[in-house]
Every structure is written in C-alpha cells, then in structure tokens.
C-alpha cells in the first residue's frame, strides 16, 4: 500500500513536470503573449495580482460568497431531504424542481439570475442552484439507504425516536454528505466565479478574470487560474485535515 502511495506521488510530480514542459514548448511555438503566455509573464502577472492591496478583499469576497451560498444550499438540502423522506407530498413536489435544476443549462440560469437579482447576489444564487440538487439527493439517499434492520433493532430495544434520529439518521446523512462535500464545495466555488464573470460584482475573482480578459492580458487570466487552483487545493487540504481530526473515517476500518 505504502509502495503504491509513493509511486502515485512520484507519478503525480512527473505529470506536473510534463504539463509545465508542454506549457513551455507551446508558448515558445506560438510565441504570442495574448494567445498563449509564457511562464515568466504569468509569474510576473501573478506577482502583480498578489501585490495588489485589493487582492485579499477580492479573494475574501469570492470565498465568502461561495461559503455562504454553499451553507445555505446545505441547510436547505438537509431540511428538504428530511421532509421529503417523511412526507411523500414534499418528495413529489421536489422531484420536478430537482429535475429542472439538474437539466437546465447553467448559462440559462445565470441569464435569468442577471435579470432578476442584484449583481452581488447572482454568483451566490448560481452556486446555490448548481449545488443544491446534488446535496439534496445525497441527503435523501442517506436517509432512504439506512438499513431497515438497524431501525428494527432500535425499535425492539425501545430506543427513543430522538436518539434514533441523532444516532442513526443524522450520522447516515453526514456520512453520505462527506462523500460529496469536497466536490460540491469545489463546484460551488467554480459556479460562483462563473457567476462573477457575468454579473461583475465590485469585488470577486470572476470580475478580476473578466477585467484581465478585457485588457487582453492572458497572462493575468492564467495567473488567476493558478490562484483558483491553489485556493481549491487549500480547501481540499483543510477538509481532509478536518476529517482526520474528527476521525470521520475511523469506523471504515
């Protein structure tokens, strides 16, 4: 197992080096900073962006929007998922809504959001619309997939309903959510940034990306992409540390 982990790490480093080499070769072949910037100009743009006093504010605004939107989706998904599992009527009301949200193209939703909502709220709304169906279905699956035999055992032992909810239903929901948490959070951030590109709020990674594009500063666009990748990586590290500290996977053996 350890051997494979080391091997995987080595392969991952090699693949990154290969990508950087392709970047260097392509930028030399194309030799046009607007179409394909070099590593040097991208690094220079990255330094300029990071040095900008507004950098932290821009990132904070995007992250805040992402997190607020995500937690609103999470809370509503948990509530609606629980209600859907209890009341058939809620389940049947939610089914076409989820189907609609899952199948309508993202751009159509962003355009509608631009018409209806304030520019500052559009990115959050777009993130919510994309992530909510995933979280809702995960919560519902977490409840419906609970082993009935365990519930029967709890009933035979006359365990209080509140304890059954707290010790069986809620952990099952959160175990299921933990499987999609990372990807849903990442998707949410991507959608928030996409929403910012079009809605142009005062501060936001998406707004900055759009600004770089307007000035045909492709190296700036590349630099922002690198920053986004680093942010996503940091979030992933933070989540896996949290999982480790909370011992979330200990029971899996």
């Amino acid at each position: 197992m350890r051997k494979y982990t080391l091997k995987d790490k080595r392969l991952s480093i090699i693949s990154r080096i290969v990508l950087i080499l392709i970047w260097i070769v392509l930028s030399h072949l194309i030799d046009n900073e607007v179409i394909f910037p070099t590593i040097n100009s991208t690094i220079n743009s990255l330094i300029d962006i990071v040095k900008d006093p507004k950098f932290i504010i821009i990132i904070s605004y995007s992250l805040m929007k992402g997190l607020i939107g995500f937690f609103i989706s999470l809370i509503i998904a948990v509530i609606m998922g629980i209600l859907s599992s209890i009341f058939k009527i809620v389940y049947h009301i939610m089914a076409p809504i989820i189907n609609f949200l899952s199948s309508v193209p993202t751009m159509a939703i962003i355009i509608l959001a631009l018409i209806w909502l304030n520019n500052e709220i559009v990115p959050m709304f777009v993130g919510f619309i994309m992530v909510f169906p995933i979280l809702y279905e995960t919560v519902l699956k977490g409840i419906l997939n609970i082993d009935n035999k365990i519930i029967e055992m709890a009933q035979v032992y006359d365990v209080d309903r509140l304890i059954i909810v707290k010790d069986i239903y809620l952990p099952s929901i959160f175990i299921n959510l933990s499987h999609v948490f990372e990807s849903a959070l990442g998707l949410n951030l991507k959608m928030v940034i996409a929403g910012e590109v079009l809605a142009q709020p005062k501060y936001g990674i998406g707004s900055s990306l759009q600004l770089q594009k307007m000035y045909l500063n492709t190296s700036g666009v590349f630099a922002w992409i690198i920053i986004i990748l680093l942010i996503v990586k940091m979030i992933q590290c933070l989540l896996s540390k949290m999982k480790h500290i909370l011992g979330a996977n200990k029971w899996k053996g």
């Binding site: 032992y157 365990v159 209080d160 304890i163 010790d167 069986i168 029971w251």
Partner: peptide, 16 residues
C-alpha cells in the same frame, strides 16, 4: 451500527 464502536453500540440501546 457500523459507525459506532463496541462501547457506543451497547450504549445506544441503554440510552434513556
């Protein structure tokens, strides 16, 4: 219950 250890599994039926 898979996510509860031995102590918690026995404790689960004793609660209340």
């Amino acid at each position: 219950i898979p996510w509860k250890n031995v102590k918690e599994n026995i404790g689960f039926v004793l609660k209340g």
